[in-house]
Amino acid sequence: MTRPLPRGGTLLLASIAGTAIANNYAIQPALTAVAADLSVPASVIGLVPTAALVGCMIGFAVLLPLTDHLAPSRLVTAQLCALAVALVLAAIAPGPVPLLAAYVLIGAAAGVAAQAGNIAGRHAPPERRGRGVATVAAGMSAGILLSRLVGGALADIVGWRRMLLVFAAVALLGAIAAFTRLPRQRPRALPGRGYRATLASLPPLLRHHPQLRRAVARGGLWYFAFNLVWVALTLTLAQPPHSLDPTAIGLYSLAGLLGFAALPVTGRLTDRHTPQAVIVACMLTAAAGTALLATGLNSPPATALGLALFDAGCFAAQAANQSRVIALDPRRSGSLSSVYLVLYFTIGAMGTALAAPLLDTVGWQGTALTAIAALLLAAVIR
């Protein structure tokens, strides 16, 4: 039987998840300064977020299954130490190629955020699994939402290189806490399931678990809608008649704090009711927010409310969906989550790629209606 986390263990995992995933985004406000410092075009340094995303996908595919084989204290500590080393390599990078290589490593190591959610779900009693996953998801959401604000402020005060060193120090503090507080018990491996066998078994999981296929379809649809709305909205607000500057557009991201606040409530509801019921309610909430965005961009309060509802629906649904994936087979939750997240991000990336062409073709309202259709389709998949 899996031992429960020590007192405060779930909150520690939430903090680790938030501070780790923040490293994929914190440098973005300083990219212009990075380009100037390295004397390269901004278009080259603009590949840094892509490098982090590639690394994150590698981490989900290759490192997340390790949660089925290694003790949480050992695994999380090692990844946070690797994250700190990668951040130091980025901070001392003499040119764009070493910087991009470092960010692939940063993205892979930052995937410890997904491991944290998996560990919280695995070590929670079944009747509290939703709360555990939602708490870590709240930490991740806070890290994503606040990363650009904190990273930009630190870069302005101490420079982008020292900013990365600050984040490296935070990662080391997390490693110390993980080593001393997280369970040292190694997961009970399934017979004949070494690490290589685990990696080889990932593709067939979709065939063996119909519920995993449905979870991928649901999650992929709302992440597609999430990226579609945010990219298209940013482009729309920057153009006439709105013509907002990047700072004003960035402030709208704070509306996502409602999604952060809604996650603990979602966890309790997931434990009390079925994840499917929670997901349907979340999708209807997100669709209502998108409908408000489709008609209310001329009103900042309406835009903020629409984004708050949209983000809350998407964030909360993700927590409920992941708890459902973990519940399929807690002993193989790392492998199941690996398949889920790789496909989830792949489908979501399509929303990012299609946002600008779709906006040019059907305009903002047509793009918003496309997102609503994806959200409603996610709601009806069972």
Rank of each mutant, 00 (worst) to 15 (best):
residue 57 M to V: 09
residue 93 A to V: 05
residue 96 P to W: 13
residue 59 G to C: 14
residue 74 R to K: 15
residue 90 A to G: 14
residue 108 A to M: 14
residue 55 G to W: 09
residue 100 L to M: 06
residue 107 G to L: 08
residue 103 Y to I: 00
residue 45 I to G: 03
residue 97 V to M: 13
residue 46 G to Q: 06
residue 85 V to H: 03
residue 55 G to H: 06
residue 54 V to I: 15
residue 107 G to W: 15
residue 57 M to P: 10
residue 98 P to L: 00
residue 109 A to V: 08
residue 52 A to Q: 13
residue 82 A to W: 08
residue 99 L to E: 01
residue 62 V to W: 07
residue 70 L to M: 10
residue 88 V to Y: 06
residue 92 I to Q: 09
residue 66 L to G: 09
residue 73 S to I: 10
residue 95 G to L: 07
residue 53 L to F: 08
residue 82 A to T: 09
residue 105 L to Q: 04
residue 97 V to K: 02
residue 52 A to F: 06
residue 106 I to E: 02
residue 52 A to W: 13
residue 47 L to D: 05
residue 83 L to Q: 01
residue 62 V to M: 06
residue 89 L to S: 06
residue 106 I to P: 00
residue 51 A to W: 04
residue 93 A to K: 10
residue 73 S to W: 13
residue 53 L to E: 11
residue 98 P to W: 12
residue 84 A to H: 00
residue 70 L to E: 11
residue 80 L to S: 00
residue 101 A to V: 07
residue 104 V to F: 02
residue 49 P to G: 12
residue 97 V to G: 11
residue 105 L to H: 04
residue 103 Y to H: 15
residue 62 V to G: 08
residue 92 I to Y: 05
residue 83 L to V: 02
residue 86 A to D: 01
residue 52 A to C: 14
residue 107 G to V: 00
residue 91 A to F: 02
residue 69 H to E: 13
residue 87 L to T: 04
residue 54 V to K: 08
residue 51 A to L: 07
residue 72 P to E: 04
residue 64 L to D: 09
residue 74 R to Y: 05
residue 67 T to Y: 10
residue 55 G to P: 12
residue 85 V to K: 12
residue 58 I to W: 11
residue 56 C to P: 05
residue 99 L to I: 00
residue 88 V to G: 02
residue 84 A to R: 01
residue 108 A to P: 13
residue 61 A to K: 12
residue 51 A to G: 12
residue 101 A to S: 12
residue 56 C to R: 08
residue 67 T to Q: 05
residue 56 C to V: 12
residue 49 P to F: 04
residue 90 A to C: 07
residue 99 L to K: 09
residue 88 V to F: 06
residue 90 A to N: 02
residue 84 A to E: 01
residue 97 V to H: 11
residue 47 L to E: 14
residue 74 R to Q: 13
residue 53 L to I: 10
residue 81 C to G: 09
residue 71 A to H: 14
residue 93 A to S: 14
residue 77 T to S: 09
residue 70 L to D: 08
residue 101 A to G: 01
residue 57 M to R: 07
residue 95 G to Q: 11
residue 56 C to N: 15
residue 91 A to P: 01
residue 52 A to G: 15
residue 76 V to L: 02
residue 48 V to D: 02
residue 57 M to Q: 04
residue 66 L to R: 15
residue 86 A to V: 07
residue 109 A to F: 01
residue 99 L to N: 14
residue 59 G to E: 04
residue 63 L to I: 03
residue 94 P to W: 11
residue 100 L to Q: 01
residue 105 L to T: 03
residue 53 L to Q: 15
residue 58 I to E: 12
residue 87 L to I: 05
residue 106 I to S: 11
residue 50 T to R: 08
residue 77 T to E: 02
residue 98 P to N: 11
residue 101 A to F: 00
